[in-house]
Every structure is written in C-alpha cells, then in structure tokens.
Amino acid sequence: MLFKQWNEIAEPRHQLDSPVGIADEGSLQACALPKVSFPVIDFKMYRRIVLSSAVMNPLFPERLLKLTNIGDMEATLEITTVGSTEDGAIHSWSFDENFPNEMDPERAQPEETRSFKVSTPIVSFDDTLIISLKENFLKDSPIFTNIIAERIVRELASYGASNDIDVVVLGTSDQVTEMKQVDHDSTTLNPPEFVTGFAGAILTQLIGCCIPFQGIIAPSEGPIGYEKLNLVTMQELVNLCHQWVTVDRDVYKNECYRRWRLEGAAIGAQSGLYI
C-alpha cells in the first residue's frame, strides 16, 4: 500500500510538497516540534466529540445550531534562524543618500526566530463538542496535523474517553469513490484506499491509543485544505449529521447546502453560477 500524491505538477511521485519550517534544509540538526496549548474542557458535559477538518464545517452551521466557542487550541512552532554567513552587497555609493526613504539593509536587524501558528476553535452545541482543523497544504506543514492530533487524543485518553463519550471522525479522502465506514474494529475501506490529512492523523492516534471510535470517510477531490464534495456525498453527510441536531430537518438541510456552496466546498458544476 503506497502513498500517491495529488499534484498537477509533474514532480517525482515520492516528493510531497509542503511548507518547510526550518532555516537550513541541509542541516543535520533535529528540527523543533510544534507546541500545542489546549483549553480546559469539561468532557463530562458532552456525549460525543466530532473530530473533522474544515471541509465538514457546512454540516455545523454556526447560527442555526447556536455554536458556543469553548476555546482555541493553538499550535506554535518557533524556528531559530541561523545568521547568514553570506556577505551583504557592498556599494561604492551611500545607501542613505540614494535611497533616503528606504531602510539600509545593513542596519536591519536580522530576525532570530520565526514563528508559525495554527489556531483551531473548539465549539459545541447541545451535547456535542466539535474540533475542526482548518488544514492548508500550501501554508501549514503536516507536522502540525500530527502533533495536534496527538494532543487531542492524549486529552481524550487522559479523560478516559472510551467509556463516556462517543468519538466520531468525519474525514475525506480522494482515494475512495464512495462513503466508507471506519470503526475501531471494522472498516469498509479496501486496499489501495487510504486516508491522510487530519482524519488520517487522528485515526492513527486513536488506533495507537486503543480508543473506540466511529467515523465516515467521504469521497472528495482536491488537495488537503481545498477539498470538494459532490452533491450525493453531501446528501449522505447531511442525513448522517441530522441525528445529532434538534433543528427541523428541512431547515437544517437547506442551511447545510447553502454553506456548502458558499464555502467553496462544492464541485464546480454543482456550486451554481450565481450566488
């Protein structure tokens, strides 16, 4: 079972492009890992926790479900940059005289650290807690995904999540053609289908910590953070999620579809020409 990248550019298949958070790629030093701050959550108040990526946000309309913000989970990566050994440009003329309004690069203070941050709001409605990570393969390194998933599952494990709370994973994959069920003891996934991204990271951690879970992997298109769902998939997801909400079915359905189109998660022909 192997990983096949989604990419339009003809690059070697084994190279996956992702933002690099280090100063020198040829370094032999280990790179720092992101640090995660997790808000204090009283898990006893909830019957289920939904773990998903932002593509599933249309299923949880903020106003309709009256979502409450519990806190933000923040992952921060501090990179210490090594001072460049390259000599700066040497000019025979005065920089200040020629560019009085510009800052002389020789006087500029080189930045010693660079900081990367990924913030994820944790929200709730009724007895459901939602952690939905906004991924972006262009901006955020997958190390954030892995570390955040590890922290969430660690929090669940320390609470003893296996007994009192249902863990639900809603994920997408461009490697499946129909909805796939993933539970802790069974799955309808067949080789070579697989799950990556936040859903993959969270499943890896749940499996590793032996925490019971249930979930759905929906077929999608597009790279991580820019997934598109088709109408049939959306219908199935709306039907699935309606069991957790107390709002009228038609109202909920219409709002989900509206958000689905507005947030650009709809596949081209189904997004409508005019908003």
Binding site: A149, A199, L203
Partner: peptide, 17 residues
C-alpha cells in the same frame, strides 16, 4: 508493532493482503 509516525505524512488504510 506500529512504529511512531509523527514525522511522516499521516496515513491510515485497511490491511493489505
């Protein structure tokens, strides 16, 4: 056993056969 995959791109799939 499964080995720690923190430094790898995430992956979960069914058992191959």
């Amino acid at each position: 056993r499964s080995v720690d995959s923190t430094h790898l791109h995430p992956f979960v799939g069914p058992l191959d056969y």
